[in-house]
Nucleic acid binder design. Sequence first.
DNA 1: GTCAACGGGATTGTCGACAAAATCATCGAC
DNA 2: GTCGATGATTTTGTCGACAATCCCGTTGAC
Lengths: 223, 223
Amino acid sequence: MAEPVRATPPTTLLPVILAALEEDIVFGRLHPRERLIEEEIAARFGATRHTVRQVLVELERLRLIERIPNRGALVKAYSPAEVQQLYALREMLETQAAALIPLPLGDDALAPLHALQRRHAQAVAASDARAVFRADLAFHRALYAHCGNVFLAETIEELGQRAQVIRYASLRSQASMEWARDQHAAMLDALRDGERDTLVTLCAAHFHPARQAYLSQHPALLS
Amino acid sequence: MAEPVRATPPTTLLPVILAALEEDIVFGRLHPRERLIEEEIAARFGATRHTVRQVLVELERLRLIERIPNRGALVKAYSPAEVQQLYALREMLETQAAALIPLPLGDDALAPLHALQRRHAQAVAASDARAVFRADLAFHRALYAHCGNVFLAETIEELGQRAQVIRYASLRSQASMEWARDQHAAMLDALRDGERDTLVTLCAAHFHPARQAYLSQHPALLS
DNA sequence: GTCAACGGGATTGTCGACAAAATCATCGAC
DNA sequence: GTCGATGATTTTGTCGACAATCCCGTTGAC
């Protein structure tokens, strides 16, 4: 149990619980292999068990938990080999997507990206991990939306969500967050100036520190 | 409504309904945009509405239907542009996966693939569309399992499932099914002989006819 | 001492019924 | 004749309660 109950309007508790549990997992307040008990969660949020159940289904779809019939839900754990493979695939997809974005990107398209970049930078400045998390997600989604392939963009986002647990290991350090911020800025410059190679390189290397951090922090996850 | 009720043990109706609806959609007995009504389905299979509801959630996860809050579930439709993009991504991923499979593949690994190939060939010979469908799926899953990246294999399979609705447009013709069968055989030869270029080319071109068939059959899906 | 059967408590799964929302046909105003 | 409101009907969403299953500590036999 990590956070106190949050006062909310009587209906639509579902998205609140979903976001809360998502963050609990991503920020490591719930550890890999930890069990999620429906009734506990229901009590925490003042919701019915039915609502919690739907949230768990959704978390399973996001691959943040695993649900075993009659046994309950566990926070998913990734072995080092899986981390390597997941990141290899992400690198492949994001490289391809970066190669597909039409360059240079016009101001109409750049403006929203700059806005998201500012939001991210502000969150970093405020050391607000939760805001950094959300802003980073939004920035990458907006970036890859320009690759011209809805399914590629969707797949990249899904894999990003799956990697959130891993990524957070690096989000913890202020230095890493600042590094990501500067990389985002460099990406925007490359988009503006039409520097394809720079962009592709930036996208490919963007998440290496996260992988490293996770592997060094969880040396014993050889399940 | 397409099929009669099937007598089954009292419990675990869920997978039965899931498989039935999946085939109804893939084989075009349920058309794009057609509405799936919970109570009708429940009555057809003698299940409770709760069970049907879970099936619909699962079908949504497979991207075969779309569920709109308070409005119900619709069979998903793809616009020509989406079909192009989906197939472009599949081609990219399957090409990469084919490039990652260690060659030549040993007999231990080839034997199960040959078995699946035989199953597929028999289904084609019997003109059993349902069996062809399942066998084709199993063959490709087993093939790409050798690429060494679980997530890549999973993603390929998911995109394949999403494309099933489209793919079936070509599965209809006996000639197309025989063509697929011969391509599978050629893939196995390339795997055995270590002919990387042949394999990659085969994998990349494997589903072109399906895309063409879908686009020519649904010219008006420009939603 | 080990292991298998057993039971109490905890946890998940399913059901029937009711509530909320959307759809559709009808009706009236302009 | 078209358009917008109104109410009945269809359809989906949610709830509380009960059933099934699993977990785990205990007991007893060998």
